[in-house]
Each structure stands twice: as C-alpha cells, then as structure tokens.
Nucleic acid binder design. Structure first.
Lengths: 359, 359
DNA sequence: TTGAAAGCGGTACCAG
DNA sequence: CTGGTACCGCTTTCAA
C-alpha cells in the first residue's frame, strides 16, 4: 500500500490501526484536509490563537478530538527550540532527600506543563560535568541541580566553573547549593541557623562535648559546620578539631567508625544527616549508653529513618518542599513571564523534637 | 545584524558568543561550509557512517570539535521519530523502593545512551491513565511502569486496558507488575515463593498465629498473600481472615492500628513492606512484647529502614537491581536489535536474616 | 480571518 | 566516497 503525499489517503489509516501497528500518527496536514482548512489555521487552533472564527475553531476541534490528534512534539520543538522540558540532575536519587526533592519538583513542573528528564550523576566531579553537558545538549529549557555537592567543596573555586558555563546557555536553578553567577538561581535551607540552634540547645542543657558529625565538604555541610562553630563561640566554648567527625551517610559505617575510636569523649551529637545520627544511635546501643540521658543525638532532614529508629530521632526539617515549590514558581516567572527573580533565597528550617534529645 | 541564509556569516557567531547570549547554536550547515563539504557528509561523520574517507572524516571532526558542535536533538527526533528517550512512571518516587528502581533504571539507560523522562502519577487510576497518555504524546521510545499498582487490583480486568492500549503504540515494560498483552514485557520478583518461605520458617519455629500485613491489592501484594496462604495450607493450618491485616505502608499508622485492636492475637508478622513491619515493631515496643522471642517480624524490600530500626529487621531482598538491569537489557535487545524477548521474567528473592526473627 | 510558504536542523535516498 | 534534495510536522510571517 502506497500513500502519495500529494494525495494522502487519510481514512486508510484505519487499516493500520486495526493491524495494530499504527505506522503513521495523524498529523496537522491530515487534520487540515479533514477540516477543509489550511494547516496554519489548525496550528492556530492548537495554540489557542484568538484570531480564528468560533465556527472554524469548533469544526477543527471536533475533527481533532475525533481523531485523537496530538501535535508532534519534535516538530514543535524544532520550530520553537523548546520542548517544555527541564533537566534535573542529582548525585544519587536513592538518597531519600534527593528522591523527595525530585518528587516535589516533578509534581510542580507537571502542574505547569513541563516534563522532566532525570539524571543521576554520581559523586565525581568529572561525572557531574559530563552530565551537565549532556543535559544541555538535550536543549532543555532549564537545568535544576539538586544537592549541595554541586556547589563545590569550598576549596577550589574553579570546581563550579562548569555551572557558570552552563548558565550561559540555560538558566540554572540549584536546590540547597549556592553558586554565584549570572543566570544561576539558588534556593537554600538556612542550615547555618538550624545547626546553630541545635547546638545552642545542647549547650543550654549542659552538654560540654558536642560531636559534629558530617559526611561531605558540600556547601550545606559547610553552613552547618559554621552554625555549630558559631554556637560554640557564642557560649565561649572552644572549637575542638577532634570533635569534628567526618564519616559517611551510612548507618553501619558510622557506627563502626565510632566503635573504632578509643579515646573520643562526647556527650551529644549534631549530625548533618539522619543516617549518620542513627549510626551514632546504634553505637550508643552497643556501648550501653542511654539516649538521651548520657548521649543526646540530633539528626537532619527529618527523613523516614528518624521515625523508624528507636528511640525516635530529633531531626531538622529542612523544608525541602518549600524549597522546591519556590524554585519552580521562580522558574515559571523567569521562563514564561520574563520577570526578574532573586538569585538567592533562604528558607528557615524547623527542629522536630523527638526522643533522642531532652530539649 | 542580519544573517542571510544564502550567505551565512559564520564567524560572526563569535560576536554573539562574546555578548554572552549565544543566540544561535552552530548547525550542520555551518560545519559543512567550514569543512568545505556537504551537509550529507557531515551527517555521515556525525553518525559514524563507514563510507567517508578518513581524510574528510578527520577534517570534519576537527571543525566539529573546534566549534563544539552538537546536533540538534529536535531535528534529529523529527527525522528519526525518536529521541532515544524512555518514559518512566512510578506512583511515588518518595518511596524508597521506587526511587531505587528509578536510580537503577536511569543508570542502565544512561549507559546505553538513552535518557529518561520521569513521571510521578500518584495512586489514582485516573491519574495513572492520564500520565501514560501524556508520556505517549512525548513520543518516547519505550514506557516503563514501576510498581505493581499498575497491574490493577485483580478485581477489574478493564483496569489495565489502558496499558494494552498504550502498548499498541509503544513497548511497555513493567517492573514488578504483570499485565498480559501484546508488546508488554514484565519482570517480577518471585514474591510468592519468598513469602511462602518466610511463612514456612515461622511455622517451622512453632509460630501458630502468623499475621499477614499488607497495604494494597496490587499484583505483588496478591502474590505475597498467595504465598502466605500456600505455606499455611502446606502445613495444614487454617487460613484465618482475621489474620490478614490491611494497613498502610506507614510506620505510625500501622503501629496505631495495631494498638487499637483489642482481641487480635498473633505471635509473628509477615509484612509486605518494611514500613509496615516497623509499625509492628513499634507496637511491640509500646506493649512491652519482646522481639523476636514473643513476636517475630519479617519485613520486605530490605530497605534502609530495616537497618535503621532496633532490633534490626529481617527482610526480603526483592532483587530490584537485577529486575531493573534485566529489564533494560531486554529493552535494548528489542529496540536496537529487534530481537524477540520474553514477555515475563521472574527473579528469585533472598531473605536477609537479621534480629527480628529467630531463623 | 485565512492561506501560502519559508524556515527549523537534521536524515536518508538517489545519482554521479 | 560525495553531493543534491526531498522529506519529518509544526510555527510564523506576509499577503490576500
């Protein structure tokens, strides 16, 4: 069966349909022919242009519905140089914080008619750079970087050059990371004050040796450490290097690391993630230390883990939902209304008190 | 500044570049002109066609690299009717099982050069159907449905018609769900045998009243219940309706539901998800029941929760990684080599023994 | 209010 | 091995 383009045999599509192959989807030319108008008019109807007579509009709409016409997104993308798509990159979506972020982002983007293409970049700088490049080559409308590792480790400024480079082409939004540059927009939880407050409360309750447990040099981790140090200083406490404890966000790894240390004394733990905090909790369990009496522990991100453990974990709710929603709202303002938006937003956190602390 | 297409002023692109706007990306025509060949040849080089002389190839390649040329994906998509994209839909990516699945899928797809567009459909039938339609309209190469809710609740066969409908257009792959139909390919954990085995072990240890706790009527939940029942029957035990306990995959909800029941006696719990199992664990803690001596509990999916709780939870590892990898391998076979592939694969599970059971 | 036609940036077939 | 060119399906000016 041959279909000449000059004489499209439209109704024969049914033949394909019934054969279950549906080789060629119906296109704008078909709709135009069936409606007895030009493709320009069909296009106007599809895009809700006001300059179409109600009568024509109705007719075309009816034909479109009857044939379940869907415009070809590629052709549209080619013409408009956009497919209403945003790229989301996170180091690892298995992490509960990241997956929650992606869930929020997707939900809000979907609401605004965008779809999201997802990338898990891993934790290597090289991989991150490669993934960002890849995303840009997909001609996404916007790039969202989830997780504060994207903001570099604070040591080498050039580590974030690739983000500034990307921003030359495409607006970049960062969730919980801060990078300075044109066309880069950041939304961060106020980790400094949250950690300051947690530490302050420990001090208030008479804790003397507060262990700060962290797992990366990310932007967020640096804010948290600064908050911890500031609270110590405010109380006139010394900042002891041995009480800054680097580990992984892994329960068993953290537990074993603590068990391995012989002469580390501490009466409380400020952790930068729940997994770490629970590692400390497991350590206490094994050593027979009672929580929160002899060891108080505070986690971060208020994940499901904080409720699953025993006793349940006091944790900082970093207001991820707010962060994500705000980000998307700003994105829409920028993309669709061309409005100016803030390049940095800070969202206050909330301490969720449970039973591993006595405040 | 005007650029006429008949006489493109290629080098003037640098003007744009330095102004930081980069209005028009370099295209195949530019590369062709710069290399002194036709666009057909450039296209051949881009696509690694063998019929290009090494000399020409080298020259074109050099120009492409120098100008960081990237083919326009939309134009390519339009011509090939494919953008090497797969759509992934899951009800809720906040769920740890789902996010792990997406992580595995993305990783493998990325390896094969596909990118994935993600959708979180929620738990309503209507939303699922709408989301599937939306995805299809994006002209994805394949659709992946993650989670056994997509396989319907087993009561109404028509609930899965939309999947068969989708499969007429696009191959559909299901992770841990089973739907019969042409062009639909399913990979499932062998939940029947895993649950059979867990139940059998409880029986072997003398448990008499084994509570089966589940949270949905999904395909997977039905397999698990069947395994539970089969094990009871095999041991000559009666199947008691009151020991089939429906809840949510929510720790606190499950805990409170158990606390509310007055006359429910049980000496062991077979749960279809870790969150449920931990709800039972919390219940035991509050009631002062010792685990595993007086109450044995077994979870499912071997999530991070199983390690975070106290005591740590015996859980079924449903081999999600294997499921996902196999699915992608099959997908590639089908898409790129046109090979026939199995429409159903079953992957055996593994029971990870920890301290909430005495087997 | 409508239609004709020029792109958008590739791919792939057909000649040479 | 290479070039010319007809699509792919839609958007958007420009005329009518």
């Amino acid at each position: 069966m041959i279909i000449l383009d000059s004489e499209r045999i439209v109704f024969d599509l049914s033949v394909f349909k019934e054969s279950g192959r549906e080789d060629k989807a119906i296109n704008i030319y078909d709709i135009a022919k069936l409606s007895g108008v030009s493709i320009a008019t069909v296009s106007r109807v599809v895009n809700g242009s006001p300059k179409v007579s109600p009568k024509t509009k109705e007719k075309v709409l009816a034909i479109m519905q009857e044939h379940e016409y869907t415009p070809n997104v590629f052709a549209r993308g080619l013409g408009l140089d956009s497919m209403k798509t945003v790229g989301i990159i996170s180091p690892n979506i298995e992490d509960h914080y990241m997956s929650r972020a992606v869930a929020y982002l997707e939900k809000n983007l979907h609401y605004y008619g965008y779809n999201c293409i997802l990338g898990c970049s891993g934790h290597e700088q090289k991989e991150r750079e490669a993934y960002v490049k890849l995303m840009l080559s997909k001609r996404i409308d916007t790039l969202v970087l989830v997780g504060s590792v994207f903001a570099g480790n604070g040591k080498n400024e050039f580590d974030t050059d690739y983000i500034r480079e990307a921003a030359k082409t495409t607006p970049v939004f960062m969730i919980n990371g801060c990078v300075d540059g044109n066309n880069i927009y950041c939304a961060c939880a106020d980790d400094f004050h949250a950690t300051f407050e947690v530490t302050r409360r420990f001090i208030e309750r008479g804790k003397k040796r507060i262990l700060f447990m962290f797992n990366s040099d990310s932007f967020s981790a640096r804010q948290k450490m600064a908050g911890y140090e500031a609270a110590l200083s405010a109380a006139g406490y010394p900042i002891r290097g041995e009480l800054k404890f680097k580990t992984r966000n892994d329960i068993e790894y953290t537990r074993d690391l603590l068990l391995a240390y012989k002469n580390l004394e501490f009466d409380s733990v400020v952790a930068t993630d729940d997994g770490i905090a629970i590692g400390a909790l497991k350590y206490a369990k094994i050593k027979g230390i009672s929580v929160p009496e002899d060891l108080s522990i505070s986690g971060y991100n208020d994940s499901i883990l904080a409720i699953g453990c025993e006793p349940e974990m006091t944790s900082v709710d970093s207001k991820l939902g707010v962060l994500c929603k705000t980000t998307i709202d700003h994105m829409i303002k920028l993309l669709e209304k061309g409005e100016e938006i803030d390049s940095y937003i800070s969202v206050p956190c909330n301490i969720v008190k449970r039973r591993t602390t006595d405040f």
